[in-house]
Measured scan of single mutants.
Amino acid sequence: MKVTIEENEETGKFTIKVKTEDGEEKTIEIPKENLEEILAKLPPNVEII
């Protein structure tokens, strides 16, 4: 699983794009305050880009 994290400076939010092993892609946008909480919940086999 690969996770790409991009900061949107205009909105102050982060866009998180997840690509699973089977090629499925999902995108979510979260507030900056929630980034550490989300990262802590990721499984250890995740590659963060």
Rank of each mutant, 00 (worst) to 15 (best):
M1H: 06
M1T: 11
M1V: 09
K2E: 06
V3I: 11
T4A: 01
T4K: 01
T4G: 02
I5E: 03
E6K: 04
E6W: 14
E6S: 12
E7V: 13
N8K: 04
N8M: 04
E9C: 13
E9V: 14
E9L: 14
E9M: 14
E10P: 03
E10V: 11
E10W: 11
E10S: 12
E10I: 13
E10Y: 09
E10R: 10
T11E: 09
T11S: 08
T11R: 05
T11A: 04
G12M: 02
G12V: 01
G12A: 03
K13Q: 11
F14H: 03
F14P: 01
F14V: 13
T15Y: 09
T15R: 03
I16F: 08
I16C: 03
I16L: 08
K17R: 09
K17G: 04
V18H: 02
K19T: 15
K19P: 04
K19W: 15
K19H: 14
K19L: 15
K19E: 14
T20M: 09
T20F: 15
T20Q: 09
E21N: 08
E21V: 07
D22R: 07
G23H: 03
E24M: 11
E24A: 07
E25Q: 06
K26E: 10
K26P: 01
K26N: 08
T27P: 01
T27D: 03
T27W: 14
I30H: 02
I30E: 02
I30C: 09
I30P: 00
I30M: 02
I30G: 02
P31L: 12
K32A: 12
K32E: 04
K32C: 08
E33Q: 08
N34G: 13
N34F: 14
L35V: 05
L35A: 02
L35M: 07
E36S: 09
E36R: 07
E36A: 15
E36D: 11
E36Y: 13
E37A: 10
E37D: 11
E37H: 10
I38D: 01
I38K: 00
I38R: 00
L39R: 00
L39E: 00
A40G: 11
K41T: 12
K41L: 14
K41C: 12
K41M: 13
K41A: 12
K41I: 11
L42F: 11
L42G: 01
P43L: 05
P44K: 06
N45F: 09
V46W: 10
E47D: 08
E47C: 11
I48Y: 09
I48N: 02
I48M: 05
I49W: 06
I49V: 08
